[in-house]
């Protein structure tokens, strides 16, 4: 009987200790932030990997370093990247004439080559699993993870990005900044 009583008291005491923990947490400063009015510190946010984006050349930030090799699109597990190469420019009449002459002389013909940067670089973020295979397989380090966190859309098409247009926009809004690599563990 007394033992039962003691057990009950012990149990009540355990509840009191638990309430003490709760009370101490009650008077401590808040650990969360009210999201739309405040966000967590920026250093933390910047290590988060958002969607993939292109990196511009050091001397021309609006042109990507990309050489349109297609390694990223080929290795992507979810096939969310599409790279289209640029076509070679049509030779002018003078060039055509020079080429024909060179061929007649038996020399090696020098045809006009296509610029290396892609004509189109599209990205479907709704398929992407952010694994980083494209970033790792890029031979010229033209891809990186952005630090975009807050993304919401009303339509699936909101997540189909034209990465070339994004790069041009970045180069215009922050001249000189576009080619600095994203801060992070990479």
């Amino acid at each position: 009987m007394i033992r039962e009583f003691g057990k009950a008291l012990q149990g009540l005491w355990s509840l009191a200790i638990g309430l003490g923990v709760t009370f101490r947490a009650f008077v401590r400063p808040q650990v969360t932030v009210h999201y739309p009015r405040a966000t967590v510190d920026d250093a933390n946010l910047r290590t988060y990997h958002g969607h993939v984006e292109l990196i511009g050349k050091d001397d021309a930030p609006e042109v990507p370093r990309c050489i349109s090799c297609g390694m990223c699109a080929m290795n992507c597990p979810s096939a969310c990247l599409a790279v289209v190469k640029q076509k070679a420019p049509k030779p002018t009449p003078e060039q055509t004439k020079a080429m024909e002459e060179a061929e007649a002389r038996g020399e090696k013909v020098k045809k006009p080559t296509a610029p290396k940067d892609p004509a189109r670089f599209t990205y479907d973020f709704s398929l992407c699993s952010l694994c980083g295979t494209c970033v790792e397989s890029c031979p010229v380090d033209s891809l990186r993870f952005s630090t975009e966190l807050y993304q919401a859309g009303f339509d699936r098409n909101d997540f189909h990005f034209d990465l070339l247009a994004r790069l041009r926009g970045q180069a215009e809004s922050r001249p000189g900044e576009a080619s600095t690599p994203a801060q992070g563990g990479q």
């Binding site: 290590t47 988060y48 990997h49 699993s129 952010l130 980083g132 992070g184 563990g185 990479q186």
Partner: peptide, 30 residues
């Protein structure tokens, strides 16, 4: 999650290990 976010880049569905290593090093801050 804050700690793991530094090397992995994500907070939940990690894809961090690679065949023959890991994708990113643990830097001094981490």
């Amino acid at each position: 999650l804050d700690i793991l976010q530094r090397p992995t880049g994500s907070r939940l569905t990690y894809s961090y290990y690679r065949l023959g290593g890991v994708a990113a090093d643990l830097d001094d801050t981490a």
